[in-house]
Design a protein around this nucleic acid. Structure first.
Lengths: 179, 179
DNA sequence: AGTTTATATGTCAATAATGACATATTGAAG
DNA sequence: CTTCAATATGTCATTATTGACATATAAACT
């Protein structure tokens, strides 16, 4: 079983979701398209790690709501104890910035402005996520402890917000360098 | 041509390198194995974007030193103006932390300690890179401007250092949360 | 004396991931 | 009135990436 499959199980330990929702909610940690997720869910179901119920909808297309099984939960716990892969980062902008001396200031500015826009959107999404976690949590977020269900999502949003703030600081620093 | 191929060209705009060196130096921005890079270099060479000279060595294996051609440099400039892909991040640790409430404090601690170790090593590598850039640069790094060859590498190391510091801050914050 | 690590290049099968195609409904925007 | 975006699930050909295999030398470690 690959890492993304375990990731799907990880999300399902919180609550049941559709493949579509899983695809959306896993994006902050692992970018994947629906075309990769649907086959993996079918595979997880065949191996008894998850199960689903058909839910017909009148206004929207019918959906399949997936839940983790006991076997799935056990596999997830075992996975956490296994060695963890190092993070993979692939950023085309970095490759471009490496040879940025090839182009003029205006090109560089546009490149930077586009990326800043991306980081701002990301920060906004994280704030929305933060609010959602706050709502779903029974207590104030600062009081969450490891055995609280929302602890993981909470600390991950914190991590992402710290990183995006670092990225935005770099953008500001660069703006000065380019002016 | 794919993004990694342009990345290789980007590195070669600074100075000639072997495939082995390219593989090492591209890691901070784009993780790739030699088994992916060597075939791409052969392809770049066939299409006239790069050229190489055989360099026999007595103490170490012979090597091929690649240089970018005029055609390669032009292609690289055009690539910078094209739309930039969004960064891809895939971190197994994040997927594990999401469901960290499944395991006990000791497991979580070990997970965090391993990651902190990784970040510290990364920070160390970045400092070495920083020193190397300082040596290769003719002027003080703060004075570097966009048309200086070392400007790109310099601002990228800054970005990476800011991010790794954010990651380490998160590790410290987590330590308190878990104690 | 044997193993691992670094240097150095390469191939190839298997796996991971993307992009395009396919289908159906609703609501919003132009 | 038409096109676009969101919801919802799926397949499949192509591309990207990995891991294993292959080879060779020197230095360091056990």
């Amino acid at each position: 079983m690959n890492t993304l499959s375990y990731g799907l199980l990880s999300l399902l330990t919180k609550h049941s979701r559709t493949g579509y929702e899983l695809m959306q909610h896993i994006q902050p940690f692992w970018q994947a398209k629906h075309s990769q997720i649907y086959p993996l869910l079918a595979q997880l179901e065949q191996n008894g790690y998850v199960e689903f119920v058909h839910v017909p909808q009148s206004d929207k297309p019918d959906k399949k709501v997936y839940s983790i099984t006991k076997k799935g939960k056990e596999a997830t716990s075992l996975w956490i104890a296994e060695p963890t892969d190092e993070p993979v980062v692939r950023d085309e902008l970095a490759l471009k910035v490496y040879c940025i001396s090839l182009v003029d200031k205006e090109h560089a500015w546009r490149l930077l402005a586009e990326r800043k826009e991306y980081y701002l959107k990301k920060k906004n999404r994280l704030h929305l996520l933060f609010d959602k976690i706050k709502e779903e949590s029974g207590k104030p977020l600062e009081k969450l402890e490891i055995h609280d269900s929302q602890f993981g999502p909470y600390v991950l949003v914190q991590k992402a917000m710290m990183k995006v703030d670092a990225d935005l600081s770099w953008c500001e620093w660069m703006k000065k360098k380019l002016s």
